[in-house]
Amino acid sequence: MVPLSYIAVATPEAAIRRTAEGQGAEYIAGGTDMIQLLQEGIVAPLELVDINGIAFDDVSVAIDGIRIGAMARLSDVADDPVIRERVPVVSRALYESASPQVRNMATVGGNLLQRTRCLYFRDATTPCNKRVPGSGCSALDGQNRVNAILGGSDHCIAAYPGDLAVALVAVDAELMVTGPTGERTILVENLHQLPGDTPHIETVLKPGDLITAIWIPLAAAGRRSHYLKVRDRTTFEWSLASAAVSLGLHDDVILDARVAVGGVGTKPWRLRHVEDMLVNQRLDQALARAAGECSADGAEPRGQNAFKVTLLRRTVERALLQIGGLA
């Protein structure tokens, strides 16, 4: 770990000033990923700006949506009665994340920005374009069982590991971001970028940007939703494949659909073609099967992760069956 300085701030303005002006300053909130990254020598900021003192940590309901403060802890949001009732896909995705101890520390804002679990990104002795641009991608022909089958490039196939972002995509969530140039909103779906030939650039956030809240429109909160996560062990593991499904249903007919998947893409992956084939259809076993079948279209498996093609199809099918009470 490279020596670094530390400062705690109490306001977004102070936080932004510090990271926008200072060279090499990074935010730390729950720290559940940042500490790992520091200890492994994967990141080496000169300064850590502790934003835990910023009190954006409540869940509130407005006339047109639900607002989750970015500093809210995963466990608090998962337990929140409004979240549980209105957007169960979000609550479920959070319960399926990490362990109780980690959920008590980690913030929802920080969780969206957690870094990949690609084995080569996490081991600083091996080439990795995401860690050291231009050094090469070791995962392409290496131990890539956990890597992405969707959205990869010749430079990077690191999977986005999180659950919450996948669930938020399925409920049309937006992020409220404050930065050096003022406030703006970003659709969660647009937060992460494809690796292309710049896998070290992961999101559209700029230096100094601070996520202050997550906004879930009430229209999305009215849909029925569900999150299914598949992994090797029962808990405390990132997904091999996951599916976040949110459906507007009327008498078993799907009026509106969102399907996003995790563990398989280089970013939280929305399956628009699957959504399109669901809309105006009656949710039954055949439809779930058909939707599952095409959910891995365009997948580019690379060796050990080939199983994810089949797993993804079955995960989407199962999630649809479960949401329809058919499983």
């Binding site: 084995l119 996490r122 081991d123 091996t126 290496g142 131990q143 069982r145 090797d232 062990r233 593991e237």
Partner: peptide, 25 residues
């Protein structure tokens, strides 16, 4: 151990990626 023959190295050398049973298992 997920062994990479190119590096002669165990790539999942941490408790996040080397899986052992957790209480829920």
């Amino acid at each position: 151990a997920e062994w990479d023959e190119r590096f002669g190295r165990v790539m999942n050398s941490n408790l996040a990626e080397y899986l052992v049973p957790v209480c829920a298992d």
